[in-house]
């Protein structure tokens, strides 16, 4: 589903990244982990700068705060890793998403979701599928596929410039 389409309601896992609340598609969430040792991947770029061990498989750890240009303070007691399975061009991709805090699973009704405003938003509009409302708060619904595709590509091009520059 891309940003242009009208959104249906969703069953969402709400998390906090810095001061903003985000909603992740709950059906795509596999598990939520306490912080685990992260292996740095040199020259991989900040968005997927690490790898973690999730039950014997090696999983990339993505930091959405990089995509949304946020501060990245070190992990604290509330930090969690949300392991998601994202369908990327027909292939499932398992990735960990770093969250400053995990709230709960909630229903966001279609009526409460608005399209992302094209202007006046602090965030890159193409990464936002819509803005939902939960009580008084706004919830950002990120377009995971688009973010991963864009950041993944950026990562490759970064890495290749790193390789060719000499």
């Amino acid at each position: 589903m891309s940003a242009g389409e009208t959104m249906t309601g969703m069953n969402a896992l709400t998390i906090r990244l810095q001061d903003e609340m985000f909603a992740l598609e709950a059906t795509h969430v596999r598990e939520i982990l306490d912080p685990v040792p992260i292996t740095r991947v040199p020259n991989a770029g900040d968005f997927v700068g690490g790898l973690i061990n999730v039950r014997g498989s090696v999983v990339p750890l993505a930091d959405l705060r990089v995509s949304f240009g946020m501060q990245r303070p070190p992990a604290d007691a509330d930090t969690r890793i949300v392991v998601m399975e994202i369908d990327l061009d027909g292939e499932p991709l398992v990735a960990g998403i770093l969250a400053d805090k995990v709230y709960d699973v909630t229903d966001i009704t279609a009526a409460s979701i608005e399209d992302a405003p094209k202007v006046g938003m602090r965030w890159p509009a193409e990464y936002v599928r819509g803005i939902g409302r939960r009580g008084e708060d706004f919830v950002i619904i990120p377009d995971m596929n688009r973010i991963i595709r864009a950041e993944g590509d950026r990562n490759s091009s970064l890495a290749s410039t790193e390789r060719t520059d000499r």
Binding site: A44, P60, N155, R163
Partner: peptide, 22 residues
């Protein structure tokens, strides 16, 4: 390595060590 790291050519893959780290 996943598609997200396909651009990083210095590594051919990853493994899990005895203490569980990658």
């Amino acid at each position: 390595l996943s598609r997200l790291h396909s651009g990083v050519k210095t590594f051919s893959g990853a493994t899990i060590l005895g203490d569980g780290t990658v």
